[in-house]
């Protein structure tokens, strides 16, 4: 049977439209915060090349953010400036480990692998999406994200094997990043995710996408002898820690009332230079 496609958001059924809108917002918020952290780590990296890579990934994330904001603007009536400037802190749906400045290099490597990696799994789930405006740009993002994954895996291997200090720091950072990342991926049996699958917005069930992420990071960390809180059962990797989804908010993709640091938004919004923002004082 041929899958029905949707040329624009106005053709989507109401429940599906809301689900797509919420997912794209959460993806764009996560990319915005990833872009901020990557950009901030242009300096202070253990090697000059790591700084160049961080800066490059920041450019990629902000480029993807522009594409997502363009889609949200044209399809859902949002405005890029409102999405960045006018929302309250508790309205951002980014992965929660990106809420605060990253304390150390191992934290950077952890968000590069887990948070950016989870987002990439979802991007692959949107390839050939029935929602055409997304299907049109997602392949380009996936191609660029391959470089991010190579960078993350390379640094993960390096820290895992360099010495006992870097290994311990990596293990701690990995556990710190994995839990909020799984929280952001959400419960696979939620009505929102089932709607996305039902209308062909994603090309696999949400459980399949979530498991692909777990199987990748579980096996990869295990190969490096880093225990991140996953165990293998019946051929698949599952968390050893509980995640209570009873209060999970599908619009924020968070289980608790957490929010980003105001200082990060201050920098992201360019609030210090507000008087120089063109076209906003007429």
């Amino acid at each position: 049977m041929t899958q029905q496609t949707f040329a624009s958001a106005k053709n989507l059924p109401a429940d599906c439209r809301d689900a797509v809108h919420a997912l794209l917002l959460a993806m764009s918020d996560t990319k915005m915060f990833l872009g901020f952290h990557y950009g901030e780590w242009t300096f202070g990296t253990p090697a000059l090349e790591a700084g160049i890579a961080a800066c490059c990934m920041s450019q990629d994330e902000f480029g993807h953010l522009r594409l997502l904001h363009a889609c949200l603007t044209s399809q859902f009536g949002d405005s890029a400036s409102t999405l960045i400037e006018k929302r309250a802190l508790n309205e951002f749906a980014n992965i929660a480990c990106l809420d605060r400045p990253l304390a150390k290099w191992a934290d950077f490597v952890a968000i590069n692998l887990f948070s950016d990696g989870a987002l990439t799994v979802i991007l692959t789930g949107l390839q050939k999406s029935a929602f055409e405006p997304v299907a049109n740009f997602v392949d380009k993002m996936v191609e660029e994200e391959k470089h991010h994954i190579r960078n993350a895996q390379g640094w993960f291997r390096t820290l895992a094997t360099y010495n006992s200090q870097t290994k311990a720091a990596l293990e701690e950072a990995s556990r710190w990043a994995l839990s909020p990342t799984l929280e952001w991926l959400g419960p696979a049996n939620h009505a929102m995710m089932q709607t996305l699958e039902q209308y062909g917005i994603v090309n696999a069930s949400w459980e399949t996408l979530r498991q692909r992420f777990l199987d990748w990071v579980g096996a990869f960390a295990h190969d490096q002898k880093i225990f991140i809180g996953l165990e293998q059962k019946n051929g698949h990797w599952t968390p050893t820690f509980p995640i209570d989804f009873s209060k999970w908010n599908p619009n924020l993709r968070r289980c608790a009332l957490t929010q980003p640091d105001e200082k990060i938004l201050y920098h992201l919004r360019g609030s210090k230079n507000a008087i120089f923002k063109l076209g906003e004082h007429n």
Partner: peptide, 11 residues
């Protein structure tokens, strides 16, 4: 081979 297998799945 250095990339996770989910990136090679044919849709």
């Amino acid at each position: 081979s250095d990339l996770p297998s989910f990136l090679s799945i044919k849709i």
